[in-house]
Amino acid sequence: MNNRHYGFTIELLPFTNSIKTHGKVINSFGSKEGYSSKNFLWDTGATNSAINENIARKLELSRVGNIEIHTAGGKIVCNTYCVDIILPNGVRFNQIPISGVQLTEGTDVLIGMDIIKAGSFLFSQDRQTGKFFFEFSIPPIHNFMHRSQVSTKIKQS
C-alpha cells in the first residue's frame, strides 16, 4: 500500500476572503496542453466542481451529460464535461465530471466538495503574524493538524 501523501501549503494574500490557487484543467479526450490558471476557487459551499463555459469552449470539451444545479438565481440545467484536473500538489484527478456554467468574474474553475472531500482541507491563520494559510493533502491525513506530514510548501505569487 502506498502511504505517501501529496500536499501543499499556500500563504494567501493579506485580507483575503476567498481561497484561490493555481491549477490546470485538461480535456480528457483532446489536447493534453490544457488551461492553466491562478483562478481556481475552492468553495466548500459548492457540491460540484465547475468550469467557466468560455474555457470549456476553448478546450473544446465534449458534453457527456447534464446536471440540475441550484444557484442563487434559481435552478438551471447545465452541461457536464469530462476533464483531468491537476492541483498545485501535483495530484491529478483523471476523467472527472465537471459542470459548465457562467462563473462569477475572476473564477475560471471552481473546486467543489466532490474534489475537496477526497483530501484533508485546512484554512488557518497564524496567531503571531496574522497570515492566512490554506493546506490540502491527498489522501486524507489522520489528524491533519500535524502539518509535518504535508510534503511540499508553495508560496503563491
Partner: peptide, 15 residues
Amino acid sequence: QKIEDQKHFISRVLY
C-alpha cells in the same frame, strides 16, 4: 448520468 436524488448547489454562478 449519476443515479441520485441529491440536490446540487453552486452559488457563484452568474445565471
